[in-house]
Design a protein around this nucleic acid. Structure first.
Length: 258
DNA sequence: CACTCATGTACAC
DNA sequence: TGTACCTGAGTGG
């Protein structure tokens, strides 16, 4: 699940649950024992998502940075004293609940300088109200890289993952191989607007839905990991683009010139 | 049941 | 460039 929408949803739930409360922290699995000890008992002050990154702030000024990666999870337990199950990297518990972090790519305490550097290498996040997309869209307009690669580059736009990339390209009718510089201004603006609206819906719903609901066959996506295209019913093509498999409909998303 | 693959980085080499 | 992360949905036997 963890594209940007999941992290924003998680940040909101953690904010509701943790902020303002003294929070016990420890590492049942042991791999974050020292970091957890540093924030143990601290009062949580903020919970924010930036693209796919989660940052919890504490009243002491300490900052906890989490990136879930591909299969990291952070799940809520109602009973704060419930026994952790499995490989729990970090448990955060207040008087009302506990949160268990498993399998993250990153879980570190960071300095304000680290946070600045992190934010400095992220592009605008469609889910942040202050996001300013103009320079990012201009970079796409100048780039010889493919639009499929550019949409996954977190330093251009932060928070889009493989599902949203494929779905957004379908909705604008563009093949992922299209060079950034071959995209039109209107198409670039529409890709950004789609990212904003689709990811906001995903954050509220808790899952990615791009196909109009209710769909008769339970379909939620047009092309990502689909056999047939949700628009025309034709076969969906799958091919690695950069490191990751892209899915698109060659009929609805024709390749354009360079 | 065993096995593969996945919504993604981070780091070792 | 390859591997770690070590979850969980889906597939096949």
């Amino acid at each position: 699940m963890p594209e940007g929408h999941s992290l924003h949803r998680l940040a909101r739930r953690l904010r509701r649950d943790l902020v303002g409360r003294p929070t016990r922290a420890w590492s049942p699995q042991g791999r974050f024992a020292e970091g957890a000890a540093e924030i143990d008992g601290d009062v949580a002050a903020s919970s924010d998502a930036y693209g796919k990154h989660l940052v919890l702030g504490y009243e002491s000024g300490r900052l906890l940075h989490v990136h879930l990666g591909l299969f990291g999870k952070m799940g809520r337990r109602r009973d704060p004293s419930a026994e952790p199950r499995g490989a729990v990297r970090l448990r955060l518990a207040t008087d009302r609940s506990a949160w268990d972090l498993r399998g993250p790519t990153a879980c570190h305490l960071i300095t304000p300088g680290d946070l600045d550097r992190l934010l400095g290498r992220l592009g605008p996040d469609p889910l942040r109200p202050d996001a300013y997309p103009t320079p990012a869209l201009a970079r796409i307009a100048r780039s010889r890289r493919t639009i499929g690669e550019l949409l996954l580059d977190q330093s251009i736009i932060a928070g889009i993952g493989n599902v949203y990339r494929c779905e957004i390209l379908h909705l604008v009718g563009m093949a992922p191989q299209t060079p950034g510089r071959a995209t039109g201004e209107h198409e670039r603006a529409r890709m950004w607007d789609l990212a904003v609206s689709l990811m906001a819906e995903g954050a509220s719903a808790g899952r990615i839905v791009t196909f109009p609901q209710p769909s008769t066959d339970g379909r939620r996506l047009y092309v990502y990991r689909q056999e047939t295209c949700g628009s025309c019913g034709g076969p969906v093509t799958r091919a690695a683009l950069g490191a990751r498999p892209a899915h698109w409909c060659p009929r609805c998303q024709p390749e354009e010139g360079p």
